[in-house]
Design a binder for these strands. Structure first.
Lengths: 207, 207
DNA sequence: CATAATAAGTTGCATTTGCAACAGAAAAGA
DNA sequence: TCTTTTCTGTTGCAAATGCAACTTATTATG
């Protein structure tokens, strides 16, 4: 994605009134999915995670967001009884608006409709690709396969076989939906079997 | 989704030339994801599955499509080395077009741009909701949780606690990414623990 | 800088899951 | 209808995974 939204998104308070930008500090909750509000968010700057906690206390990192990623309640059916919340992993700048409004061009030709609404289709397509990648990972049968698939994705994104994980190992386990200690054990086995080299959070693929 | 696309989609060969409708018989391959062709499909009628076979011979039902569901290569990054293919589970009618073209309104005011292009945002939003539901299922840690989550979803969709599974049990296992015999065992345990009643492929929730 | 908090790394043990191999039931096809 | 194929249901055993508990690094924070 080559678009830098932040360069042309500054303040929409003069045009579409329901569009607003907010800032969050690391650790703060950006939004939680409770009611059906058709809320639509764009992460302009920073890193954030969509988290789910189940009754057993297990945390799942449902999605991991960075620049230009979109999220919000509008993407979720009522369904789930588990709490979903988006938490800032670093300082974040987030654009909020209501999805319903987006397609109706406002009378005044505002910046919002000129810029953001134009690129929405591309942002949405990217989101679908992310979700499909996520499904591919989660549908792998073993921890080993999940790890190797994930490493392959990172490797092909960064165009190198050696990279620092964008997650802590604790978070990676929650992202792959596996027990952390079991994952650590499997990482060691992958090292022993010469599939990977591992120095702290740097992984090098040996194949 | 209340829209019945089939009622106004018949033949686009007179307008946008690259838009076409095709028919498939049960068991036929509708498309396979190999090259990056920006192919975009709408399932007008029938049931179809997106399947992945890994090198161990495991089959995964990545997505399960019915009326108005969308799919195609445009939603996938190059990435995966596994073969992905969409197979008709019943006789199907499918609309094919290239996603790039969709936003450029053609000069002649064709039926395609009048109808399909208009409802695309809604179809896409539905797809994202489906994918999120899928991720929620797959990220459940145990077979029991996967089964119960799945049953809850079906139950709330059909507005009844008693329903016939839209999958064979074999397919359900491939959809939840678990071993079939292990799933059968867990189903029996759920029965023994009085969580469900099970008569063949009819499930009744007892809670 | 000292201290607290979080993350990495490890291990034994219990539980869950996958695998393989069946038999019987149901569905599809000739 | 008969035959073949697919699906359901079951089980023993091996392997993978989760859980709990702990130690050692590393990173925040006053």
């Amino acid at each position: 994605m080559d678009i830098d939204i932040s360069s042309f998104i500054t303040d929409f308070s003069n045009c579409c009134s329901k569009v607003q930008t907010k800032f969050f500090k690391k650790g703060e909750v950006i939004t939680s999915y409770i009611n059906k509000r058709n809320q639509f968010c764009i992460l302009i700057k920073g890193k954030a995670d969509l988290l789910r906690y189940d009754f057993n206390g297990n945390r799942t990192i449902v999605e991991h967001f960075s620049n230009n990623d979109i999220f919000g309640e509008v993407f979720y059916i009522i369904s789930t009884n588990n709490e979903l919340l988006v938490e800032a992993k670093s300082n974040c700048e987030v654009l909020f608006f209501i999805y319903n409004d987006i397609h109706k061009k406002c009378k005044i030709n505002c910046k919002f409709h000129e810029s953001v609404a134009e690129i929405l289709p591309e942002l949405i397509l990217n989101k679908i690709m992310d979700l499909n990648m996520r499904i591919e990972l989660l549908s792998k049968r073993t921890t080993r396969e999940k790890l190797l698939s994930y490493f392959n994705i990172i490797s092909s994104q960064k165009l190198t076989k050696s990279f620092i994980l964008p997650f802590s190992l604790t978070d990676l386990a929650d992202f792959l939906s596996v027990d952390r200690s079991a994952m650590m054990r499997e990482l060691k086995l992958l090292k022993d079997d010469n599939f990977i080299k591992k120095e702290g959070n740097r992984i090098t693929l040996l194949y």
